[in-house]
Design a protein around this nucleic acid. Sequence first.
DNA 1: CTCCTTTTGAACTTATGGGTTCACTTTATT
DNA 2: AATAAAGTGAACCCATAAGTTCAAAAGGAG
Lengths: 219, 219
Amino acid sequence: MTDTASTKRSAPRGRIDKRVAILDAAFTVFARRGYEQACVQEIAEVAGVAKPTVYNHLSDKENLFRHAIEAAADAVMADNLAVVDRMRDAGDDLRTTMEDVAYRMLRICCDERSRALRRLAYAQLNRFPDVIEVVHRRTSGRLAEGLADRLARLCLSGHLRPCDPTQAAEQFLALLTGPMETRSQLGSRKVSAAETRAVAAAAVDTFLRAYRATPADPS
Amino acid sequence: MTDTASTKRSAPRGRIDKRVAILDAAFTVFARRGYEQACVQEIAEVAGVAKPTVYNHLSDKENLFRHAIEAAADAVMADNLAVVDRMRDAGDDLRTTMEDVAYRMLRICCDERSRALRRLAYAQLNRFPDVIEVVHRRTSGRLAEGLADRLARLCLSGHLRPCDPTQAAEQFLALLTGPMETRSQLGSRKVSAAETRAVAAAAVDTFLRAYRATPADPS
DNA sequence: CTCCTTTTGAACTTATGGGTTCACTTTATT
DNA sequence: AATAAAGTGAACCCATAAGTTCAAAAGGAG
C-alpha cells in the first residue's frame, strides 16, 4: 500500500495530495462541460495547480477521465452500500423501513455527483465502453446485488412471497428511479423533497402490492 | 435563416430534398460521434453534399443539431403513438394484450434511433436544455400520456382497481425500461428477443399484481 | 438558348486545445 | 546549507474543425 498517512515516507512529500485535488477537479470540470469540452487548463486551475503538474500525475486527458470517473463511482458505491445496509432491520415495520430506504436511495441517485456520473456514462458510451461498464457495475450493479440479498431474506422470513430476489430488486429500483427521471426531466430540474418522498411511497406501495406475502399464504 | 418557413418561394426544385438528406445524415453522424466530435465535413459527406451546401440550408452546427434531433424525436413519437394505440382493444385478454404492447414498447425504446436520442439528450443536457426538454416531452412524455389514457379506461371498465392513471403509467413504463437499461448496460449491449420478452412479461406480471382489480372488488 | 438559383470544390481564416519543453522556484529531508 | 524531487509559468508546436469566400459548374424555367 502507498502512503496515505500524514507526513511520512521520503519521496512524495505532503504534496502528493495534489493528486486527489486534480482528480476532484477533473470530475468537477468533466461534469460541468462534458468530456470533449473540458480543457485540461481549466482542470488545472480548479485544482489550484499548473498544467504540467496535471500531466505529471496523470499521463493524458483520457487517463484523467478514467481515474476521475472511477473515483467518483467508488464514492457513489460507498453511499449505496451504506443505504442498502439499512434494510437489515426491516422485519419490524416493513413498509416504513422500505419507504425510508427508498427515499435515501432517491437522494443518492439524484444528487449532483450521481447525475453527473450518469450523464458522462451515457455521453461516453462509445468512446469509453470499458470505463462505463465498470461504473455501471460499481453503482447500479452493487446496489441491485445488495438489495437482492435483503429481499431474499425477507422472502425466507415470510414477509414477501416467494420470488426471484434479483428480479424483485431490479423492479424495485426501476419503480424508484424511473419516475424520478421522468419528474426531473432526466435530472435537469430539481424535484422537491415532498415529491421525492411521494415517489418513494408510491414505489413501495406498488412493490408491496405485488410482492407482499398473501395473508392466506403466511410462511 | 428561412429554414423554418414552409417551402420558400415557388417549388425549389427536386433538389431541396437535399435538406432532408442533410438532416438524416446529421442525426446519423451526431449519433455516431456525439455533438462535439461530429464534424460538419463528415455530415456533408454522408449526405452526399458539399460543405457550403450544409451551411446554406442550416445556418450553423447548433441549428443543424436542433433540427436533426427534433426530426428524430418526431419519428420516435410517431412509433410510440402507434404502439400505445394497440391498447385500445385490451378488454378481452388483458395480460396477453399488455405483454404484446410491452414488448413492442421495449423494441422501440431499444432500437438504435431511440438509444442515440437518449444518449445525445443526456450528453447535451447542459448545452441544449431547451431542445432536450422538447425531445423528452415528445417521446417519453407522449408515451406516458397516451398510456395513462388507456389505463384510465381500464380502471373505469373494472379491469384495474381505481388508481391515478398517470402514476400507474409512469410505473408501468419504469418497470419496462428500467430493467432493460440494466440488462443492456445502458444500451451498450444487445438483449436477445427472448430476454426482452421475459422482461416485458415480468413487468406486466408485477404491474397486474399491483393494479388488477381484486376479485372481491369487481367493479 | 438564356437567366437565375443552387451546388460544388478548394483554399483560407481563425480559434481552440492537447501535449511538451525549459528555465526557475518551492519544499522537505539529511 | 545541500540536495533532489516536485511544482510553476510561459511559450511553443501541431492538429482539428467551424465557418467563409469565390469562381466555376449544373440544372431547371421561360
